[in-house]
Design a protein around this nucleic acid. Structure first.
Length: 111
DNA sequence: TGCTTGACCGACG
DNA sequence: ACGTCGGCCAAGC
């Protein structure tokens, strides 16, 4: 399994997160078959090619917070895009109980 | 080649 | 509800 292959699996999962829902890095990694490697999901998003259509902003950390450095363009954009989809922030965090994506299948997702 | 950093997480105080 | 710690491992220098 090469890195680019791993990233493709991660991206495939991220593409399935529905509008108005969010997933955590750990959740995305596990669904792609990489349990206990949440950082792999972060790396995959960081390596997303420009122009690739991907709802990267629907991935947040397990604390319900945006993981991009605060007060950066990316962090503000992520918050705005989520707000546009109706995902509400309270005290700088998303209520995961309410907005977390709950897929039917737990098997690794392919394209 | 080695070492540090980090779009992380769960367990435990 | 925080802070710390160990596990994890690709990136970047």
């Amino acid at each position: 399994m090469t890195r680019s292959e791993s990233y493709k699996l991660i991206w495939a999962v991220v593409r399935r997160i529905p509008r108005g829902k969010v997933a955590t890095y750990g959740q995305v990694a596990a669904l792609a078959g990489f349990t206990r490697q949440p950082r792999l999901a972060g790396h995959a998003l960081g390596q997303t090619p420009d122009g690739m259509k991907l709802p990267w902003y629907r991935v947040i950390n397990a604390q319900g917070k945006i993981s991009l450095p605060p007060n950066t363009k990316g962090a503000r954009e992520q918050r705005r895009l989520l707000a546009d989809e109706g995902v509400a922030f309270m005290r700088g965090r998303v209520d995961l109980e309410r907005y977390r994506w709950r897929p039917r299948s737990e098997a690794p997702l392919l394209d």
